[in-house]
């Protein structure tokens, strides 16, 4: 069993609030690991520490065995970690295709290249088109990102993460705000990614979580109170009490 990501005793506080309180977690290659927990449990804070947007106060993050705890975000991305955002984060004034092409460009060597027009570099554009087709946005490629619907923004957010080719995808509520049909489509899509990429998924949509996850961790007040298979979590009394709201 090869560990892709290992988190040891991670801690992060904001003033008096402890958002991450000694989190231990490990992801094996190819697994889809979901993190659930009530609002304010520190899920996004955890992802931000993994992506490098936030510095942990204490603890260690190992990626492929190497310590990345103090690495800046852009270097982690180069190593193969990417994230999507709970609140859609795209370059809104650029086209849908440009957004994805930038992600492809990010894993195609450095970009201190000043002469050739980027929009005419066929392998970047073709790969971006492929990814767009994969998420079902091929016919939207030429539109400015700002003109897409909310559901399409969520799809594009995933497309951008996918296009980086990162081994580890940190997905922060990809289903946020999606209606039934869009939501089902996203679940199907993520199912198709299983095994291909290692995914850490934060999600409130329990149908999605139980349909997708290999393992689930429950985060409450910055602590992981349980980790296990979907069935184990469903049957865990402590989880039911703390999170699912049953006695």
């Amino acid at each position: 069993m090869s560990m892709l990501l290992e988190i040891r005793d991670l801690k992060k506080g904001f003033g008096g609030v402890t958002a991450t309180d000694g989190v231990n977690l490990s992801l094996t290659q190819g697994e889809l690991h979901a993190i659930i927990g009530p609002n304010g449990a520190g899920k996004t804070t955890l992802i931000s520490q993994l992506s490098g947007a936030l510095r942990p106060d204490a603890g260690v993050i190992l990626f492929k065995g190497g310590d990345i705890t103090r690495r800046p975000a852009h270097k982690r991305a180069r190593l193969g970690i990417t994230r999507s955002f709970q609140i859609t984060s795209l370059v809104m004034e650029m086209s849908v295709l440009d957004n994805v092409a930038l992600a492809v460009q990010a894993c195609d060597g450095h970009s201190f290249r000043f002469v050739k027009p980027a929009r005419k570099i066929s392998h970047l554009r073709e790969r971006a088109q492929e990814v767009l087709a994969q998420v079902g946005l091929a016919d939207r490629a030429a539109l400015p990102a700002v003109e897409l619907s909310h559901g399409e923004h969520r799809q594009l957010e995933i497309a951008v993460a996918l296009a980086t080719g990162a081994e580890l995808m940190l997905l922060d509520e990809p289903m946020a705000g999606l209606g039934g049909e869009d939501s089902a489509r996203m679940i199907d899509f993520l199912k198709g990614l299983k095994g291909e990429r290692t995914i850490l998924l934060i999600e409130h949509d329990m149908d999605a979580v139980f349909a997708l996850a290999d393992r689930i961790s429950v985060l409450v007040y910055g602590r992981i109170i349980a980790t296990g298979s979907p069935d184990e979590i469903r049957g865990n009394a402590e989880v039911r009490h703390a999170y699912l709201g049953e006695e």
Binding site: D98, Q105, A106, A118
Partner: peptide
């Protein structure tokens, strides 16, 4: 150029570009 796309992308959404690497 590629450089310009990064420059313009960072103008629109710096965090996204950093996250891309």
């Amino acid at each position: 150029s590629r450089f310009g796309m990064v420059l313009r992308g960072a103008k629109g959404n710096d965090e996204r570009l950093v996250t891309l690497g």
